[in-house]
């Protein structure tokens, strides 16, 4: 019951909350009265800036970023995030499942992943920039690693928590190992794994952006770095809000799609709870 109402809650927006968003914008507006525009631009000027810089930003070409706008930078960043989340989820989930069922592998992988989990992933960024260069590769690998660690933990925990009775039952019915993976293990853990992907996705945007900030030729992070050098707060706001909106929208889309997938898995398969 709780699950169902929560799922419905994803799609329903509280009207009081919309008032809250309005209030937030009003507070922002009120703060601009007290602060100079060089510290805090007004909401309307930021919106105008987003419109102006969307396809091609004049300012950026002064700083050596020719023919760049918010749109194509965002596409670059989003592509990297999508590739990284897909790759990292795949690797992390498979590793999580394998370690949940094979204890020897777990004894080896667990300490490695726990160490990875404890280090701030960001420590690795400068290494990656030297090892793999300031191209797409460094940022993507960094995000892949981060996503893989999260999914490893989520998938492993989900497989651990799956009631063994389902797998035992399937064995008594003569199912092969392969069938058990596809018919029991995967559908039974889909909701938790998808929850992990959502969390990983939410964190991936910031990590990708700072990887670009530290060293990249393109991307929204690169734009922010260039604008920060020029102390252009309005431009930074515009870039951050575009990035934030894309992050919010991607999270909403993921929630919607995942809710449908999870509903199917829970209803159609015995293991899905």
């Amino acid at each position: 019951m709780g699950r169902k109402s929560r799922r419905r809650g994803i799609l329903r927006i509280d009207p009081v909350g919309i008032f809250g968003v309005f209030l937030l914008i009003m507070i922002w507006q009120a703060l601009t009265l007290a602060l100079p525009p060089s510290s805090l631009p007004t909401p309307s000027s930021v919106v105008a800036r987003i419109g102006r810089d969307f396809i091609r930003a004049e300012e950026l070409s002064f700083y050596g970023l020719a023919d760049t706008g918010l749109l194509n930078s965002m596409i670059y960043t989003a592509t990297n995030v999508m590739i990284a989340v897909a790759l990292g989820s795949l690797v992390g989930t498979i590793a999580g499942f394998v370690t949940a069922r094979f204890h020897n592998v777990r004894a080896i992988l667990d300490p490695i992943v726990m160490t990875m989990g404890t280090i701030p992933i960001l420590v690795l960024a400068p290494f990656f920039l030297i090892w793999f260069g300031v191209e797409r590769m460094s940022a993507v690998l960094l995000v892949v690693l981060y996503v893989a660690v999260i999914l490893y933990i989520f998938a492993q925990r989900a497989a651990d928590n799956l009631d063994p009775v389902y797998e035992e039952y399937a064995y008594t019915l003569g199912a092969s190992s392969k069938r058990i993976v596809w018919d029991i293990l995967i559908p039974g853990t889909v909701p938790q794994v998808l929850g992990g992907i959502r969390i990983a996705l939410a964190g991936a945007w910031g990590l990708e952006a700072i990887a670009e900030l530290l060293g990249a030729q393109y991307g929204i992070g690169k734009i922010i770095q260039v604008l920060a050098g020029a102390t252009d707060v309005q431009g930074i706001f515009a870039a951050l809000i575009v990035l934030g909106l894309v992050a919010v929208i991607s999270d909403g889309l993921a929630a919607l799609v995942f809710a449908h997938v999870a509903a199917w898995s829970a209803a159609a398969r015995p293991g899905g709870n």
Binding site: I13, D14, G17, I18, G20, V21, L23, L24, L122, A202, W205, G206, L207, A209, I210, L213, I220, G221, I224, Q225, L227, A228, V233, I236, F237, L240, L243, G244, A247, V248, D251
Partner: peptide
């Protein structure tokens, strides 16, 4: 709702700000 939006803003990208 506004909190949810603020949470989704990528923190690390805000360092320059």
């Amino acid at each position: 709702l506004p909190l949810q939006f603020i949470r989704t803003l990528p923190l690390l990208a805000m360092v320059p700000l």
